[in-house]
Simulated scan of single mutants.
Amino acid sequence: MTEQERADALKVVTLIITRCKQALPKFVPGTSQHTLLKNRIQALKIGSALLGGGDVEKDSNETLTAALEPLASIIRKCEKARSKYEPGSGQYNRYGSTIRAMELSRIQIENELHRRML
């Protein structure tokens, strides 16, 4: 991954974290939507830290492993939404950059887990 790819992914992840934090108060704590957003925010923060060269040593292996599913969920939902648009359109491209950012975050988390296993 190039530094430009890393910077682009970090920008997208940071933007999504902001949007999720803004949406969080709209849901009642304890509801599935609230929990989903909390889990996504946690996963995105871990991905952001790894993309930005931050420290995730305080996060347990279980926390890192748990972060993989929310990222996979975002990827699936974006792929499904993107399929409704023509390649080259604005929405298609926006979903593509989100998918790339989530995949890079997922790879970073998997690499960190692998590093810890050695």
Rank of each mutant, 00 (worst) to 15 (best):
A66V: 02
I16M: 08
N93C: 09
C20K: 15
R115H: 11
Q108H: 08
M102H: 01
Y95S: 09
C78A: 15
L68W: 05
T31S: 13
E69P: 03
R116V: 04
E112Y: 08
P25C: 04
K77N: 15
H114A: 12
S48L: 04
K77E: 14
I107W: 08
Y85S: 09
E69S: 10
F27I: 01
K77G: 11
L71T: 10
E69F: 12
G47K: 02
A7Q: 14
P25F: 10
L51V: 10
L37S: 01
L64T: 06
R106D: 10
S32Y: 00
E79M: 14
D59Q: 12
A23W: 04
C78P: 06
S97M: 09
I107Q: 15
T63F: 01
E79L: 15
I16K: 12
R40P: 09
L24N: 03
L51A: 05
Q108S: 15
G47F: 03
R94Q: 13
R19H: 11
T18W: 11
M102G: 04
Q33V: 01
L68H: 04
L10R: 13
L51T: 07
R76I: 15
Q91G: 12
F27W: 15
G53C: 05
Y95M: 11
I16T: 11
V12W: 08
E103Y: 06
A23N: 10
R94M: 12
L64I: 05
S105G: 14
E57V: 12
E57D: 14
Y95E: 07
R40V: 02
L64K: 05
A81W: 06
G30H: 00
K77L: 13
M1G: 15
L51K: 02
L113M: 07
V13R: 03
T35W: 00
T35H: 00
A7H: 10
V56A: 05
F27R: 04
A66I: 01
E112G: 08
I46R: 09
S73N: 15
C78F: 10
G53Y: 04
C20I: 05
T98P: 01
I17T: 10
